[in-house]
């Protein structure tokens, strides 16, 4: 019974090393696993997809996180951008934190590499970094005229001269704002853009913050949400199954379809570049890590009960 006592007083560093390994190994050796999409993710996907090919509809991606949460939010951003590029949806990107500006470029460039025909100012437009003091003026100003409120894009071009802005005037056209953040910044969009101008607002958040957003999801103030690496993995799958096949969303298809990330498959095969399955590989790591933690919890409990049975009351 010594072993149980030992488990009870296990040095936390052993836990750390095992957790580290259970994260690193699945990242290095990807394996196929089943991803089931959830409604908040599907809602975001469907909303974006409904804008496909419409020159008078666009989405806005607001990046409000810094590099520390890149691991969770970056695959989401890339997946959403990829969706837009695949389905010809106009995208605008924006950030109000100086450290975020490079991340926006990074996401756009990563997604763009595989789409030679996608052009800045035509298919997407990066508004770039705007000082935080302009947050409200821009957010509210876009309710009337985006070109006036934002003025210039990250490349210093007048927005009104860009082809992308044709047909896009305010939130009536820019009908979905997705805020990617590790905080509750999405509520500024809900309070101002949604309440005042009726813009649809969705969130892409880290898994920890997701719980905060559920009430707003239920009340419909958020039309959808991508939560953590799981949301990103789901979105990646949706893009693979529908957008890349130029199909319309169907709950019935997604339920049954399994997209392998390794090995052969008639449709997907090895064709999915690493960057577009990053979240799913991350999801593998998360699965193993969760299992590991559950095993630890169980071990801890076994040790606890064994100790108690022995009469070792403390």
């Amino acid at each position: 019974m010594k072993i149980f006592a030992k488990i009870q007083s296990l040095d936390r560093r052993y836990i750390y090393i095992i957790v580290a390994l259970s994260i690193i190994i699945p990242l290095l050796i990807p394996f196929n696993s089943r991803i089931d999409t959830t409604k908040p993710t599907e809602d975001v996907y469907q909303m974006i997809d409904s804008f496909a090919g419409k020159p008078n509809k666009a989405i806005l991606m607001n990046f409000s996180h810094n590099a520390s949460t890149l691991a969770e939010l970056f695959p989401m951003e890339v997946a959403v951008l990829r969706h837009c590029f695949e389905r010809d949806v106009k995208v605008f990107t924006l950030c109000f934190m100086p450290d975020t500006a490079p991340l926006v470029d990074y996401a756009i460039n990563t997604a763009k590499e595989d789409f030679p025909n996608i052009k800045a100012g035509v298919n997407y437009c990066n508004f770039g970094y705007k000082p935080y003091s302009l947050f409200l003026p821009i957010l509210l100003g876009m309710g009337e005229n985006i070109a006036e409120a934002v003025e210039i894009d990250s490349e210093g071009r007048k927005l009104e001269n860009l082809p992308i802005i044709e047909g896009i005037k305010n939130y009536d056209d820019l009908n979905l704002v997705i805020d990617f953040s590790a905080s509750s910044s999405v509520f500024s969009w809900v309070t101002y853009a949604r309440a005042k101008f009726g813009a649809n607002v969705a969130a892409g958040v880290t898994a920890v913050m997701a719980a905060d957003n559920y009430p707003y999801l239920q009340s419909g103030q958020l039309i959808g949400m991508l939560a953590g690496i799981k949301g990103a993995a789901e979105y990646e799958k949706l893009v693979d199954v529908f957008a890349t096949q130029q199909r319309e969303f169907s709950k019935e298809i997604i339920k049954e379809e399994i997209v392998p990330i390794t090995g052969d498959h008639p449709i997907y095969g090895d064709k999915i570049p690493y960057k577009f399955k990053k979240a799913r590989i991350g999801m593998n790591a998360q699965t193993v890590a969760h299992l590991m933690i559950i095993i630890f919890i169980l071990l801890g409990n076994i040790g606890y009960f064994a100790n108690r049975k022995k009469g070792g009351k403390k």
């Binding site: 470029d105 763009k112 990250s154 490349e155």
Partner: peptide
């Protein structure tokens, strides 16, 4: 009068 930014990588 103005500038056009370019991404160094791409």
């Amino acid at each position: 009068i103005g500038r056009i930014d370019v991404n160094v990588k791409t």
